[in-house]
Amino acid sequence: MKKSRLNIFLLMGIVFSLILASGVSAQAAFPEKEITLIIQAAPGGVSDAVGRTMAASAEKILGVPIVPTNITGAAGAIAMGELKESPPDGYTIGYVPVELAMVKALGYADISPEDFDLIMRVNIVPAALTVRADAPYQTFEEFVEYAKEHPGEILVGTSGTGSIWHIAGLALEEVIGAKFTYVPFDGAAPSVAALMGGHIHAVTCSPTEVLSGVEGGDLKILAVLGEKRSPLFPEVPTAQELGFDINVMAWGGFALPKGTPEEVYDTIASAFWEALETETFQKIMEERGIEVSPLDGPAFREFAMQQFEMYMDLIPRALEQQ
């Protein structure tokens, strides 16, 4: 009898200490172990550069390592799917690109900005209309005129059907009332190479991607298709300034799985914001030609949903035309 009572006491003691321990760990300050940062693109591109630089800057503030992991495939849908399914405890963060607002319309995966707790937008990459320097049109207006007179003749290279730069071309076509023929390539760089080689007539990718060609005198940017001029080419006007209502840009930011506790969300958001403002982060972004244009969580959510609705309308029409 005595022995069994002792056992019960022991058992109760263990149970109590377990409850206490778990209570303590629930109250312990986040973070207490390393954080994984999922990057949806291969090492080397803009997404990877922003993700890794942020990880390096924010881990000093949070005091735990942030380990970047590149999970590629399906225009980022696999990585974003993984983030969506991760436990919402703050230990898995993801970089989310413009494709967050696109993959559902493309039919790759059932993912929308609503599936995440968005932390912040970091950068934007505007589209720009670039042509060969020896083209018969030297200004945006001349291009518009030429395009209207020659429907279907202008070959516009894109970074793939349904990609953000293809959408930029479609939006341009709609706003100027012309008809292009689209030539999809496997990414922006091959389309720029094809433009420099004279195989196509125009591209609608970002100014960064055509920088070398423009500086070398082979290419010419006619207009930026985003909301403001590019810091790389301050002399190039935006299409909006010329009276055409168009605003297409790629962007990127960070997100957490839906349902992350508020304290955890706040800790991460303030650490990331602080990291963004460090001199090192700003300097690396500037050297890489990445335009930092931050929005906080709520503003990013509103922006992303707006984009999501726009693409849900544009992309199905775009795919139909092909």
Partner: peptide
């Protein structure tokens, strides 16, 4: 850019 022979799986899209 439409998925082919991916058997409905996101993993096989690319």
């Amino acid at each position: 850019a439409t998925p082919r022979f991916n058997l409905g799986s996101t993993q096989l899209i690319t």
